[in-house]
């Protein structure tokens, strides 16, 4: 059973602020979804099943510069909330 403090912990892990009311709402909603999806434990599967999506092949390219440095900087920085001298500006990282 999912508890309220589990949801608080998840909020912190996912960096999402939750109101007190939301913590309660999400606890019951997530618990009901988790109960439903837990049915997968009933399916017999291979112990060493390897994930199988897409095709296995080497997609690495040569380590060459694809474009002149700074070509897209202005365009990209237009979206940034705060910039300075061509850098994205952030708060001090503790």
């Amino acid at each position: 059973m999912l508890q309220r403090n589990d949801v608080e912990h998840l909020g912190l892990l996912a960096r999402i602020a939750l109101s007190e009311e939301e913590k309660d709402e999400f606890t019951s909603e997530l618990d009901s979804v988790l109960s439903y999806v837990s049915e997968i434990s009933k399916v017999t599967t291979d112990a060493d099943a390897v994930p199988l999506v897409g095709e296995l092949r080497n997609v690495m390219r040569e380590d060459d510069a694809l474009n002149p440095g700074g070509e897209f900087t202005e365009e990209i920085l237009k979206n940034a909330p705060a910039t300075e001298d061509g850098y994205v500006k952030v708060k001090q990282i503790f």
């Binding site: 999400f26 997530l30 999806v37 434990s41 599967t45 099943a49 994930p51 199988l52």
Partner: peptide
């Protein structure tokens, strides 16, 4: 939040890994 839970330590095996295996089935 749901995704964070199924990937978190202690639940990863029962949920995420199991789902990957059932996906293959």
């Amino acid at each position: 939040l749901l995704g964070t839970y199924v990937l978190s330590a202690g639940y990863y095996d029962a949920y995420y890994n199991k789902a990957v295996a059932v996906r293959r089935t």
